[in-house]
Computed example of a mutant assay.
Amino acid sequence: MDNSLGNKRLKKFATLFTAFATTTTACLALGTVSAHAEGSISIAQQFGIGYLILDVVRDQHLIEKHGKEQGLDINVEWRTISGATAMNEALLSGALDVASAGVPPMLTVWDRTRGRQNVKAIASLGSMPNYLLSNNPAVKTVSDLSEKDRIAVPAAGVGFQSRTLQIETARLYGNADYKRFDTISVSLPHPDASTALIAGGSEISAHFSSPPFQYQALEHANVHKILSSYDVLGGPATFNVLYATQKFHDDNPKTYRAFYDALAEASQIVKANKAAAAETYIRVEKSRLSPELVKKIVEDPEIDFTIIPQRTFVYAEKLQQLGVLKNKADSWQDYFFAEAHTDSGS
C-alpha cells in the first residue's frame, strides 16, 4: 500500500474519531444537564405577606411532595431578591428559574422577551389591594394632589404602584398626560415611606403602600386612604405573580407540574385555616409583626390568596394603550402558561 495513501486514511479516521468523541461528550454533557434540571428548581420571592402562598409551599415541602408523586426527587432552592429589576436580571441570565413581582413588571418582561426567552406567568400569588395614602388633610382624592406633594413608591414610574397610578391618571386627564404624577413621585422602600408618612414633617405627603404597611399606617389618625388599586382595576385584582422562561417550562415538565400543583395546594391550605397560615408567615419570614396584625391581614375579606389571575388583563390592555407595552395581548392567556388556562382567570 502506498504510505501516503495509508497516512491519509489514518488521518481521516483520526478526524472522524475525534468528531465522534466530541459529539458523544457533548451529548452526554447535555444529557446530564437536562437530567439535573428536571429535578431542580430555584425560586425567588420578595418581602411581604403577598408571598404567603410561597411561605406555605416552603414550610410544608409541597414541591418535594408533588415531585415524589411523579417519581421525581426535586431539589428546591429558595432565594430572596428585592426589586423586580434585580429579579428579572437573575431570571434572564439563567441564575434563577422562577421570579416573582407585581403584574406590571411581569408584563414588561413578557413584552420585551417575546420571540426570545418568551417569559410568561405561572400563577397568581393572590388578589390584594394597595392603598394610596396621604397625611395631607387637603388631599381627599387623586385630583387634589399638587406640586407641593411628594408620593413615595418603591420604583417611581415603573413599579406596580406607579403603573396603577398612571392608569388612574390617564382616566382622569387623558392618555397623553398619564405621567402627570411621575414628576412628584419619589422612589422609597415601603418601610421608609411608611415611617415618613406617619411621622409627618418631611416632603413625603403620600405613599402608594401595600400590606402590611398600609394597615399599620391607617392605625394613625393623621393618615387616610385616597385610592385603592381595586378602584382603578374595577374590583379584586392580582397583586403579585410568578413567572419563568419558556425554556424552563418546556424542558422541565414534571418539575413545573409539581410546582404548579404545590401552589394550588398551598392556596387551599391558606383558605382552609387562615389563623394557621398567619402563624406560618411569621415563622417562615421570621416576622416581627404582631400575630394579631398578621391574622387581621390574612383574614381581610378584600384579600384572596388564590393562584387564579384576576383582572391582570386590565394592566395588559391599558399599558399597551399608553405605549408602555409594545405587544398587544388578545387575552390574559397570552402571557400565562397553559397550565393556568383551565381556571377562569382574567
Score class of each variant (00 low, 15 high):
residue 202 S to N: 11
residue 237 A to G: 02
residue 236 P to T: 07
residue 226 I to V: 05
residue 212 P to S: 13
residue 235 G to S: 07
residue 234 G to Y: 06
residue 224 H to Y: 02
residue 219 E to P: 01
residue 237 A to Y: 04
residue 230 Y to I: 00
residue 210 S to A: 15
residue 233 L to C: 06
residue 237 A to W: 03
residue 214 Q to L: 01
residue 218 L to E: 00
residue 209 S to M: 03
residue 225 K to R: 15
residue 221 A to F: 14
residue 205 S to R: 14
residue 221 A to M: 12
residue 210 S to E: 08
residue 224 H to W: 07
residue 222 N to K: 14
residue 219 E to T: 09
residue 204 I to M: 10
residue 229 S to N: 08
residue 218 L to S: 01
residue 220 H to N: 15
residue 208 F to R: 12
residue 234 G to M: 03
residue 207 H to C: 12
residue 232 V to K: 02
residue 203 E to C: 13
residue 208 F to C: 08
residue 211 P to G: 00
residue 228 S to Y: 11
residue 218 L to D: 00
residue 223 V to D: 03
residue 215 Y to H: 14
residue 220 H to C: 07
residue 222 N to A: 09
residue 210 S to K: 15
residue 224 H to V: 04
residue 220 H to Y: 15
residue 207 H to T: 04
residue 228 S to T: 06
residue 202 S to W: 07
residue 219 E to N: 14
residue 228 S to R: 08
residue 227 L to W: 02
residue 216 Q to P: 03
residue 222 N to G: 06
residue 206 A to K: 13
residue 217 A to N: 10
residue 230 Y to D: 02
residue 223 V to I: 11
residue 233 L to I: 01
residue 233 L to M: 10
residue 214 Q to E: 05
residue 214 Q to R: 11
residue 213 F to D: 05
residue 211 P to N: 11
residue 229 S to G: 09
residue 211 P to H: 10
residue 227 L to R: 12
residue 227 L to I: 05
residue 216 Q to R: 14
residue 218 L to G: 00
residue 229 S to A: 07
residue 232 V to C: 02
residue 230 Y to K: 14
residue 206 A to G: 12
residue 229 S to M: 07
residue 227 L to M: 04
residue 232 V to H: 04
residue 217 A to Y: 06
residue 216 Q to G: 05
residue 222 N to E: 09
residue 230 Y to R: 14
residue 203 E to Y: 13
residue 233 L to H: 04
residue 228 S to I: 05
residue 212 P to I: 12
residue 234 G to N: 05
residue 212 P to D: 02
residue 212 P to V: 12
residue 222 N to D: 09
residue 221 A to K: 15
residue 237 A to F: 04
residue 234 G to P: 08
residue 202 S to R: 12
residue 210 S to L: 12
residue 209 S to E: 00
residue 225 K to Y: 02
residue 234 G to F: 04
residue 204 I to V: 14
residue 209 S to I: 03
residue 212 P to C: 05
residue 210 S to H: 13
residue 229 S to H: 07
residue 223 V to L: 06
residue 233 L to G: 01
residue 233 L to A: 05
residue 231 D to L: 04
residue 207 H to E: 06
residue 231 D to I: 00
residue 216 Q to D: 11
residue 223 V to E: 04
residue 203 E to F: 15
residue 225 K to D: 01
residue 226 I to C: 04
residue 237 A to E: 04
residue 212 P to W: 07
residue 236 P to L: 07
residue 217 A to L: 06
residue 202 S to T: 13
residue 210 S to M: 13
residue 222 N to R: 12
residue 205 S to N: 09
residue 215 Y to K: 10
residue 224 H to K: 11
residue 208 F to T: 05
residue 227 L to C: 04
residue 205 S to P: 11
residue 220 H to V: 08
residue 207 H to Q: 09
residue 202 S to D: 05
residue 208 F to V: 07
residue 230 Y to E: 00
residue 216 Q to W: 14
residue 236 P to A: 15
residue 216 Q to A: 14
residue 210 S to I: 06
residue 223 V to Q: 07
residue 202 S to M: 10
residue 230 Y to W: 12
residue 207 H to V: 12
residue 212 P to Q: 05
residue 227 L to D: 00
residue 208 F to G: 10
residue 230 Y to G: 00
residue 212 P to H: 13
residue 231 D to A: 02
residue 231 D to R: 09
residue 224 H to M: 02
residue 207 H to P: 11
residue 204 I to Y: 13
